[in-house]
Design a protein around this nucleic acid. Structure first.
Ligand SMILES: [Zn+2]
Ligand SMILES: [Zn+2]
Ligand SMILES: [Zn+2]
Ligand SMILES: [Zn+2]
Lengths: 149, 149
DNA sequence: CATTGATCTGAAAATCATTCCCATCTAGCG
DNA sequence: CGCTAGATGGGAATGATTTTCAGATCAATG
């Protein structure tokens, strides 16, 4: 194997000590470029010839999410899917339930709305989760029906 | 025990055959008046002296959700929480993370926004999940900080 | 460099919600 | 009253995530 020089991504500083495994996990996570599950990432790492323990993958992703560098959703099966978030920005996605394609949406109206609710309600520390799911044009055969959960 | 005549809630017709267990589960579910997990409902039923199998509780709640008579969210631990929905209406709540108090919010702006996204994106069958959580005035001691997930 | 205490890793075991299996009931219909 | 598709329940199975903990690594220090 060629001696791959590891960079030291600044993200790692956010989540503790710098290690080989974290470098590799982070790199693969970024490369994934979309929502990935811990298990899938673990499998990918093994396939790439840089195996890392499943626990370590979980720990790394969980910490990244905690540090605000990863978005987190749950698929319908209850599995957690992570998505790398380069900056501190906050956004929402429309995700295809068939192929996983994720598509950022303009969420300014939501942010304003949520901020307004927070103000009016008297609740403290108001957070929101907004998920949009659907079937993308490539996957959906036909007519566009819009339903509400 | 007094012979409790069972009504036949119309909801049950939506999800199949009418049984004692379904009556009892549905009654407890409605009485719960807020988000409940299947396990909690199962425990409640046992405490009420009308034990029902856990599988049956799961089946009943799942079917109600399928029939559109229950809202469904996941708590941070991955557990599914159900909430009885009397009519076909659709709404969103601001839920206190401390005491569980849920507070309906005006979601018209969200609905419009989501509908707009659905239109523009070309995605079919677009659904949305919107959850607001915070600490209600009774539970929160002090100043109101608003964070974004 | 060598030392050393704090951290990290990973394989296996433990958790825990949810689903599956299947022998046994029962609602609903004639 | 029978009959049968549908329903029940308890225990086993599943599957994602977490915990455990002994040994490996890191980074700071002398
Ligand atoms: Zn798609
Ligand atoms: Zn937002
Ligand atoms: Zn409260
Ligand atoms: Zn809505």
């Amino acid at each position: 194997m060629a001696p791959t020089r590891q960079r030291t991504p600044t993200e790692i500083a956010l989540i503790g000590r710098h290690t080989q495994q974290r470098s590799v996990v982070l790199a693969a996570f970024i490369r994934a470029d979309g929502f990935v599950g811990a298990q899938a990432l673990h499998a990918q790492l093994a396939a790439d010839g840089t195996p890392v323990g499943l626990s370590t993958v979980y720990r790394t992703l969980t910490r990244l999410a905690g540090a605000g560098r990863a978005d987190l959703v749950r698929d319908t099966g209850g599995e957690r899917l992570f998505r790398y978030r380069p900056g501190p920005d906050h956004r929402h996605y429309l995700i295809c339930t068939e192929c996983g394609l994720s598509h950022p949406v303009d969420s300014a109206p939501i942010e304003d709305w949520a901020d307004g609710i927070a103000q009016d309600s008297g609740f403290a520390n108001v957070r929101h989760t907004v998920e949009l799911t659907g079937v993308c044009p490539d996957c959906g055969g036909g007519q566009a029906a819009t339903e509400r959960q």
